[in-house]
C-alpha cells in the first residue's frame, strides 16, 4: 500500500515535469511528420510511417525514462524531502519500488498516448495495424523498464547530470554489444577476446528488444506475428521479456543495496 502511495506521488510529480511535455510534443510532432513524409514515397507508405513512428516512440520514451529517472531519488535527497518520507514507517526498498513503479506507470501512459498518435496517423493514411504491432510496443516498453532501472540505479549515488550521461551511454552501448563481440572475436589478443566476451554478457543487450524491422515487415505484408517463422516469434517475445525482467531485477536490487547503505542523517 505504501508503495502505491509513493508510486502515485511519483506519477503526479512526473506529469508536472515540463521536460515530459517537451519530449511528448516532439514525439507527437515527429509521428505526425511521418504521415507527411510518407506521402513523398512511392508505395510502402505504411512502412515509412511505422519506421519513423516506432523510432520516435522508442527514442522519446527512452529519453523520458532517462530524464525523469535520473531525478527520481536525487531530487528527494536534494530537497531533503527524503527525511520526512523515511521517518515514516516505510522501508527503503518500498520507497524505491514506489518510485520505480510510479515512473513506469508514467512511461506506460506516455507510450499509450504516442501509440494512439501513431495508430491515428496510420488510420488517417488509410491503413490499419494488427495485433503484431503491439508485440513490438511491448518489447519497446521492456526497454523502457530496463533503462529506467539503470537511471534509478545511477540516481541513487550520483548527480542527475552524471546519471543522464551514464544511462545514455548504456543506451548507446546496449545497442552495440554485438559489434563489441564481433571485433573481440576477430582480435588475436586473448585478453581482448576474453574482455569483449565478458562485456558482451555483462552489458544489457538492448538489441534483444528490437524487433521493429521484423514487425513492420510483417504488418506491411498483412501477416500476423504468430505466422512468423513458425512460432519462433512468440518464443522470442517471451524470452526477451524474461531477459529484460531478470536484468532489470538485478539492476534494481543493486540500486536497493546502494540506497540501503546511504546515510541520510
Amino acid at each position: 500500500m505504501r508503495e502505491l502511495a509513493i508510486a502515485f506521488n511519483t506519477f503526479r510529480e512526473c506529469i508536472r515535469d515540463r521536460i515530459l511535455y517537451n519530449l511528448l510534443i516532439f514525439a507527437i510532432l515527429i509521428i505526425g511528420l511521418s504521415g507527411i513524409l510518407s506521402t513523398l514515397s512511392i508505395g510502402e507508405q505504411v512502412r515509412i510511417i511505422l519506421n519513423i513512428g516506432l523510432a520516435a516512440i522508442e527514442i522519446f520514451g527512452v529519453m523520458m525514462a532517462i530524464f525523469l529517472g535520473i531525478g527520481l531519488v536525487y531530487k528527494e535527497i536534494d530537497r531533503r524531502t527524503i527525511y520526512t518520507i523515511l521517518s515514516k514507517p516505510i522501508k527503503r526498498y518500498q520507497f524505491l519500488v514506489g518510485k520505480f513503479s510510479g515512473l513506469l506507470f508514467t512511461l506506460l501512459v506516455n507510450l499509450i498516448i504516442m501509440t494512439a498518435g501513431l495508430v491515428g496517423v496510420v488510420y488517417l493514411m488509410g491503413w490499419h495495424v494488427n495485433s503484431t504491432f503491439f508485440y513490438c510496443l511491448w518489447l519497446i516498453f521492456m526497454e523502457f523498464v530496463l533503462i529506467t532501472s539503470l537511471a534509478l540505479l545511477f540516481s541513487c549515488f550520483s548527480t542527475p547530470t552524471l546519471s543522464a550521461i551514464f544511462t545514455l551511454s548504456f543506451f548507446v552501448i546496449g545497442h552495440l554489444t554485438e559489434d563489441i563481440k564481433f571485433f573481440g572475436s576477430r582480435s588475436e589478443n586473448p585478453f581482448l577476446q576474453k574482455a569483449s566476451t565478458i562485456l558482451y554478457y555483462i552489458l544489457p543487450n538492448l538489441e534483444n528488444f528490437n524487433i521493429k524491422a521484423l514487425v513492420i515487415d510483417t504488418i506491411v505484408r498483412g501477416l500476423y506475428f504468430e505466422d512468423v517463422s513458425a512460432g519462433v516469434g512468440l518464443k522470442l517475445i517471451l524470452f526477451s521479456t524474461l531477459y529484460g525482467l531478470f536484468y532489470t531485477a538485478i539492476i534494481f536490487l543493486l540500486a536497493v543495496i546502494i540506497f540501503e547503505k546511504r546515510d541520510f542523517k
Partner: peptide, 10 residues
Amino acid sequence: PTFLTFNRVE
C-alpha cells in the same frame, strides 16, 4: 537465468 534467457534470445 539472465544468461540462460539471453542465450535463448540469441
